[in-house]
Nucleic acid binder design. Structure first.
Lengths: 381, 381
DNA sequence: GCGCATTCTGAAAGCGCTTTCTGCTACCGT
DNA sequence: ACGGTAGCAGAAAGCGCTTTCAGAATGCGC
């Protein structure tokens, strides 16, 4: 009875399946038991077959208490012969706790979220947790709905990965869901700034990152800038835009409103914004796209319109999603350790709740690549 | 009693929260009820507060039966005042069905899976379902474990998105989990070919797609090919490689074994494979990477080693992940409607189970882009 | 060989919800 | 005004599991 079935936590039988072979008997598989539209095998069935009580069967499968070796064997054998799978709902109900966590992001297929989700799922797996993934497709209302669903699921933790909205009504609705969840022991952690949510936070230093980027671009000699931005209501937008603008102001440089183009936070949004910029005949020598994803779209737009990057205009992004290394030219950006961000926010949610909310600040690192150079000549208006 | 709270399905209270204001009383919010580490609000609590029976409260919240208007009001009010969230586990237990589906892929952060996951989550959301996402990180054992977990969760359906493994032991272990799941009413749908799994399938025509691609490349004038491939045990690999090779063979052209480089199915795998190809001094004028993701790595490797694409060597991929439009040069590939694939596999799983497993074949479309041209000159060994 | 401490097993009470099943009230036709 | 029939509320029996509690079996010391 050494180290076998050290089955920590999960209670998943899985590994027992192939052990069936050790049971002497005939070749009768599981098929001798259940018919076509068979009902679920319950712990009761297992107990009956092993000729033990329900309690004993439960104890064996959970390793709660020591159980006499022969009974133990019988239960394990019965469970695997019947291909028993515990009903997680019944377990969750009886134990008043579940093995899943909720992850809410804007869009899984966005490389930014995908990278973070990777960190989250990996970490969750290390703890035997299952991730319930929700994509809001950038609809605030849907975000609230999902929190309600996850609350109903008694998710052990809820992770909000998307940027917060600066919107009174939304904040109110969100709090109305989150507060009772937290009050009953739910854990919440968010990535990026959420104005009014008093929860544990992993906070990329968007403002500082954008400032540092602006300085680096100023150092390259740029004086005329344009910014491709997402919806103003997102905290990420106001932080990055604010930090960038402030750095310019400090350097005595103005960022005219007509050089700030607002579009959706997507590749196509970036494409549209850059196209609009070209249409307006911008004199900017350097364009800052608030996210790499937008920058990718912008890069293609410039290429399609015969604007050379960085020859005619320099382009910078933010996030350092993996793909930007492979672009031509490789993109200057503010690097965030995305996968680690996911890992941290997961760990934060798993840690003992603190008296007051914790904030982990993550510093972005400016990475200058070939998409930015010193301005050669004015980009003719 | 018109169209308000038409609360179809979900039973999520959410929207009721702000209605609290209509109750005349004092400013006492929910805080008058629960303390700090408060217990969960149960339906019983709601019923008590509304002075109705448990059954009535349940009926109101589910819209099962008509309930007298005043009682109905009282229940709704009580629920929102208490910020009641039904316990999904208890519901799942009582109803013997749940609102979640399982999605198993290799790695969410791979654009191929991310795009498919997007289609799946969108479709799932349309049906009020929550997606439990599992990334196996390409570990077959983990894949089986996840099926066990999802089975325990009584997921309404399990979607296997990754390629199947051609491995007896794995197939056996997988069937051992899947068979009982299906037998008890679980729905399983897979994307890509799984040799021994008799389940509903959305099947991209990998073989045919690769054949068509090969023909197109032959038409361009290429005669010397190399292939960058993933692990041979994946059905996707054997199908695409097989189809490609067959087309060459039909044209009387040999694909030497040393021109087939096996690496992991990732961007870095593609990079490594292309680097190895260069090291070997290949005379291939055209390289086929079995996936776009590998092709992206290969493209960067060629660039880093000063090999011009398509000048010195043409490069083609497979899948048409969104980003390939933005590469330089844009990648020739076999386009698969990825998001639609996710949608289809989800719908397949949701449809009434059929007597025998259905197979939806999806034809890939060869898209020639700038990464392939006619061979100019032999790529010097 | 007896009493007591020590395991280990089994019976049973929930966990929070749905859903019969039963019983009531109120309304209809005549 | 009366029987009949909807229509609706409440009691209670589960759903499948965990876990206390009490009881049975084992081992020990003396």
């Amino acid at each position: 009875m050494g180290d076998d079935s050290g089955d920590s936590g999960g209670g998943v039988t899985g590994d027992g399946v192939s052990a069936t072979g050790t049971v002497g008997g005939g070749a009768s598989g599981a098929d001798s038991t259940a018919g076509a539209g068979g009902a679920h095998v319950t712990l009761q069935d297992v107990a009956r077959r092993a000729e033990v009580s329900l309690a004993t069967a439960s104890r064996v499968l959970n390793g709660t208490t020591q159980v006499r070796a022969d009974l133990r064997e019988r239960v394990l054998a019965a469970a695997s012969e019947l291909a028993y799978a515990p009903n997680a709902h019944a377990q969750a109900l009886a134990r008043a706790s579940s093995h899943s966590i909720g992850l809410i992001c804007h869009d899984v297929s966005d490389p930014y979220f995908a990278a973070i989700a990777r960190g989250v799922t990996r970490t969750a797996a290390d703890h035997g947790l299952l991730v319930m993934l929700a994509s809001t497709f950038r609809d605030p209302a849907r975000e609230v709905d999902y929190v309600a669903m996850l609350r109903a699921q008694r998710a052990r933790a809820i992770l909000l990965i998307g940027s917060g909205f600066e919107d009174r009504e939304w904040e109110h609705a969100m709090s109305a869901e989150l507060d009772p969840y937290i009050r009953t022991g739910g854990r919440v952690a968010v990535l990026s700034r959420h104005r009014s949510l008093r929860v544990d936070t992993v906070q990329p230093e968007n403002r500082e990152g954008a400032t540092a980027l602006a300085r680096a671009l100023l150092d390259l000699g740029h004086r005329d800038f344009a910014v491709l931005t997402g919806p103003r209501a997102l905290t990420t937008v106001s932080d990055r835009l604010g930090g960038f603008r402030d750095a310019l102001t400090d350097a005595g440089i103005d960022l005219p409103d007509d050089q700030i183009i607002e579009e959706s936070f997507t590749r196509d949004g970036g494409y549209a914004a850059a196209t609009e910029l070209i249409r307006r005949g911008s004199r900017a020598t350097c364009v800052f796209a608030l996210t790499d994803v937008m920058a990718i779209g912008a890069l293609s737009a410039f290429r399609d319109h015969g604007v050379d990057v960085p020859g005619q205009v320099s382009l910078a992004g933010f996030d350092d999603i993996p793909i930007v290394r492979d672009l031509v030219p490789p993109l200057t950006t503010v690097a965030l350790p995305l996968e680690e961000l996911g890992e941290r926010v997961m760990n934060l949610a798993l840690r003992e709740p603190a008296r007051r909310s914790r904030v982990e600040r993550i510093t972005g690192k400016v990475v200058l690549r070939a998409s930015t150079t010193a301005p050669r000549r004015r980009h003719a208006g």
